[in-house]
Amino acid sequence: MRQSFVDTIIDLAKNNKNLFLLTGDLGFSVFEGFKKQFPKRFFDVGVAEQNMIGVAAGLALSGKTVFVYSIIPFATMRCFEQIRNDLCMQDLNVKIVGMGAGLHYGIAGSTHHAIEDISIMRSLPNMTVICPATPEDTRNAFRAAMLRKGPVYIRLGKSHGILDCKSKQRFSVGKASLIKNGDDITIIASGAILYDAKECADYLLKNNNIKTRLINMHTIKPIDKNIILKASKETKAIFSVEEHSIIGGLGSAIAEVLAQSKNKALFKIFGLPDAYPKSFGDRNYLLKKSGLSAMKMASDILKVLRGR
């Protein structure tokens, strides 16, 4: 994902003389190419995220489009009020690129995990929240963010390869992509955990003949209400899957839509518990511990369907 991001931003910078890139001293072995090609539009502002957002706001108020980069907690939480006051209140063209969605920094520990960021960013007026799942999503997300007016938050994980996706629809902010169709249940996933959701759907088909409608909700704000309401009418149950706290993320966004509609679909949120992990390990270890493995989700889905 990092490579797709850096290739795309170099492409964008070639065609947009107003594109600036700021980093909070991160991006070793990532940004060297950009820095070499566009030395006047690249700034490592140092380990000072509040200033990074403020400087980005000043550049944006002067007509620039600014991408800012750091690890998610530092890019979104350390400088939250600058994002709120400087970027969102003034609706500025600053695109926050956060690396390390959910548990991607695994063994680095809780300071580097990002389990609250979607909830926080989603609550900000004017903010768009995009969580790419695939390298292609990432490329599309950056192109879309460049064109979209106002602040955008792009939440990146690591690449988990090409996803075999049947959807031929064009990427559009606020329009989810259908990965595969099905009429029994719906799984809506966001970010790299989409790969595990797909594995879960494949398992359910193979072992239980359950046909899953699998949706990639790459944009969490604005959320694609239509695809949620359609699924609630046409399938028996909806399951959301995210690498984020069960509070305030994708599941909450879907629940907000469902709870205010007359369709009463069965609904369950798969996400990280409302807790900081007490045992440490890599991403796969932590996901498994949190019940976010494909197998565990499949067995939980079967339980829900059986009414247990």
Binding site: Q50, I53, G54, V55, A57, G58, L59, S62, Q82, D86
Partner: peptide, 8 residues
Amino acid sequence: SIGAGMAL
């Protein structure tokens, strides 16, 4: 900070 961005 905003002023510094504008100055840049």
